[in-house]
């Protein structure tokens, strides 16, 4: 990922914390790494259960075109999101999935693929299912290497509701450590 502009799409159900993931990634890169990050979101009128997508553009310079066209990285948190957006992922991109919510059978994946049961980990290892998005943030940080662990942890701490920082940092570490394990580090 040496390119000046990195496009990321995060997609799943409304209620999974997709927008917050995008927010944490953007904040880490822009506020704590000091570069530029633009977050846009597409949403329907539903508050829960509808398809939800967050798009983040990371750049060393000012982001001109704010939307994601052909993502370098796609994080799929639901089957519907995977089916809808997988075709736009770059051929040499990175695909990250919530492996218990996305079934890849019958699809020939040509990109680098990373899988994590983020929801189950949030339930079993963190003790709060709600933290699944932060587990995924940790995993994303480890497997992409785009943003430092430190910047991401600061962004998590700065973003989550007060009183839940410790819980969410734990969730982040669970995802991060699993990511390192997957990479064989």
């Amino acid at each position: 990922m040496a390119a000046d502009r990195v496009e990321i799409r995060l997609a799943g159900f409304g209620g999974q914390g997709i927008i917050m993931m995008g927010y944490v990634i953007g904040k880490a890169y822009s506020i704590f790494e000091g570069y530029e990050a633009t977050l846009t979101q597409s949403f329907g009128p539903e508050a829960r259960g509808g398809a939800c997508s967050a798009q983040v553009v990371l750049s060393k310079d000012k982001v001109l075109y704010p939307y994601v066209v052909q993502p370098d990285i796609f994080v799929a948190m639901s089957q519907e999101a995977f089916t809808k957006y997988y075709p736009t992922l770059k051929k040499d991109g990175i695909l990250i999935i919530e492996e218990e919510l996305v079934d890849l059978s019958g699809v020939d994946i040509t990109q680098k693929l990373f899988k994590i049961p983020a929801t189950r980990f949030a339930e079993e290892k963190v003790g709060r299912r709600l933290t699944l998005n932060i587990v995924m943030c940790g995993f994303f940080t480890a497997v992409t290497g785009l943003i430092s662990r430190d910047a991401m942890r600061k962004a998590v701490e700065d973003t989550v509701p007060s009183g839940t920082e410790e819980l969410n940092l734990k969730a982040f570490d669970v995802g991060y450590e699993y990511g390192q394990q997957v990479l064989g580090k």
Binding site: E36, A37, T38, L39, T40, P66
Partner: peptide, 9 residues
């Protein structure tokens, strides 16, 4: 809407 809902530094 684009500028209104776009998040940046």
């Amino acid at each position: 809407e684009c500028v209104g809902h776009m998040t940046e530094k």
